[in-house]
Each structure stands twice: as C-alpha cells, then as structure tokens.
C-alpha cells in the first residue's frame, strides 16, 4: 500500500465526513431507533459494565405492529426476559422456585434510543466517526456529544444496511468507556413463527410473583426547583422495599437517554440516615437528608447531576 494511497483514502474520508450533514445523522439515528423495534432478528450480545460481563441471547419479532422479544441471560443465574409491547415479564430461576417480575416499558438493547429524538436533539450533538465492522456487519459510527457536563457521551454503531443498533457505549469526559453493550453475532429472521416466545418452564418448581413494587403513580408535595438542564420528570411510583414499613417514593427523570431516580422516604425511628456519594462504574449515587426525609439519587449520569438533583429538593408546606 503506497503512502499516496493512504493520503488519498484519508482525504476521501474527510470529504465523506463533511458530506454527512448534521441532519442526515439525525435521520440515521431515527432509523436506528425504529429498526430495533420494526425488524425481526436474533443474536447474541454482550453487556460490559466495570467488572461485570453478561452474554444475552435475543430474539425479536414484530408481528403486525406488535413486538415480541425474548432475552435469555446466559451468564450467572438463569434469567429470561419476555416483552410484548410495553409489558415485560421476567422469570428468575431461584434455588427452589421461579420468581416472576413484572416491569413496565423500558428501552432495552438494541431498542435503546427513544423513538422521540427531540429531547436528544436539545442535549446532544452528533458527530460522524467513520465505519467499523461489528458482529460481521458494517456499521456507521456516530458520537453523541453532550452539550454540557450533566450527562455522559455515547457512541452508537448503526448497521449500514438495516439501521439496527449493533453496539452502544457510554464514555466519561476523559473518554473512558464506562459501559458497553453490543452484538457478537446477529442475523435477520425471515420467519414470523412465535414458538420461541415461551420460558423454559420447570414444572417441578413453584412460580411466585415478586410483589415488592406497587406501580401506583402518585403525586406528593415534593418540589425540585431547578432540575439539571434538559432533564424532565418522566414518572413517579411507589415502592415497597423488603424490610421497610413505609413505601419509598421513586421519581424518575430523563434527558431522553440518561435517566436518574430520586428516592424519598421518611426517616423513621431506628433508621440510620445516610449522607454521602458513591460511584460504581457508570452509576453515581448521592444520599442526603432533608426535613426528616432520606433522599437518595441514583443515575447513569455524572456525579454533579445526581448531586444537583438532591440539592434542589424542597417540600411544599
């Protein structure tokens, strides 16, 4: 390979980058958000976060607008996650029983980008990085660069042909990868057969429901004067935590991609209030006590974002 060839190739790459205008990149992102929900595919993906690595087998089918997904966690304890539209049911094999958890809609890999990109456009800028091969597929690599330091940077690998999200990573300000999730192997499915949409049932075990969460949507007298820029409250639920006599309120905030939870519970007799901060991989935790309430803020966001939310909480009289 001659030096001249390399220079030409680099020049071509620069031209190519300029050609891909900002708006085109958002079109690619929109395609990426939709493809994960509309296509029929199966594959194997790996999730990395700090020392944690998990392999997951996924099958996804969109049958006349209805989405069916099965995720089988292959490492650690057996776990199967089924979703049909927004309903998610998780089967956890335990020693002598199977615990069934019910969840609400979440943007799970590869459907991690929200279909509504408008909030993201306000908080992130896109930058075309180049092309890379992931899981045997050619991918467009796009960086989502935050407008401020209240959120992390993301890198997205989108299948050049189908638009399917092949890989996604989260990076801190220094450019260190905090969290990464991506296909090792993926293929498109031609069939619309749903015979795979069933858990591996062990008839000898009792099936029990996990009932720690009461998904009542509640309102209270909590006020957060200044949420970090770009974050909005998306939900408020009540949790029954084992060992607690009083339900814990959970408020959820999101900038469209990153999410933060604020937990509020009264400090009752015998309870040790907690104050301080903690970082675990991409997750930051900030604990604070206010007016006899324990506040805990948790999120895959920089430390200052969780701290800012905790500091802004007040209670209406």
């Amino acid at each position: 390979m001659s030096v001249q060839f390399v220079i030409r190739a680099l020049f071509a790459l620069v031209l190519c980058q300029q050609a891909v205008a900002d708006e085109d990149l958002w079109v690619t992102m929109q395609k990426t958000a939709s493809a994960a929900r509309e296509l029929n595919y199966q594959g194997l993906f790996i999730y990395h976060n700090g020392a944690i690595i998990r392999s997951v087998q996924i099958t996804h089918i969109n049958e006349a607008g209805r989405e069916f997904t099965r995720n089988v966690v292959l490492d650690g304890r057996p776990r199967e996650v089924f979703s049909e539209g927004d309903d998610i049911v998780i089967f956890n094999a335990k020693n002598d029983k199977v615990v069934i958890e019910k969840r609400r809609g979440q943007n799970l890999f590869p459907a991690m980008l929200p279909t509504q990109l408008q909030p993201l456009k306000q908080n992130y800028k896109l930058k075309f990085v180049g092309q890379e091969r992931i899981a045997g597929r050619l991918a467009q690599v796009i960086d989502m660069i935050p407008n401020d330091n209240l959120r992390y940077q993301y890198r997205v690998w989108s299948d050049s042909e189908y638009g399917l999200l092949l890989k996604m990573s989260m990076l801190d300000v220094q450019g260190h990868t905090l969290e990464q999730i991506g296909f090792n192997q993926v293929s498109m499915l031609q069939t619309k057969d749903l015979d795979w949409f069933q858990p591996k049932i062990d008839a000898s075990k009792p099936y029990v429901m996990d009932d720690t969460t009461d998904l009542t949507h509640v309102e209270n007298n909590l006020v957060i004067a200044n949420l970090p820029a770009g974050y909005k409250k998306v939900d408020q639920i009540r949790l029954r935590v084992p060992g607690r006599t009083v339900p814990v309120q959970q408020l959820i905030f999101s900038d469209g991609l990153a999410s933060v939870s604020l937990f509020v519970e009264p400090v009752i007799k015998g309870m040790q209030p907690r104050i301080g901060k903690k970082t675990m991989g991409s997750t930051n935790v900030y604990a604070h006590v206010l007016n006899g309430y324990q506040l805990v803020v948790v999120g895959e966001v920089p430390a200052q974002t969780v701290e800012q939310i905790a500091q802004q909480v007040t209670f209406k009289k």
Binding site: N49, R103, G105, N107, V241, V248, S259
Partner: peptide, 12 residues
C-alpha cells in the same frame, strides 16, 4: 430499583 424502573436501562 433505579435500574428496574428507569426508562433507559441496559442493566436489567
């Protein structure tokens, strides 16, 4: 609980 109920979670 955050990972279980936040809308964007790779960690379930």
């Amino acid at each position: 609980a955050h990972h279980n109920y936040s809308p964007n979670s790779a960690t379930y």
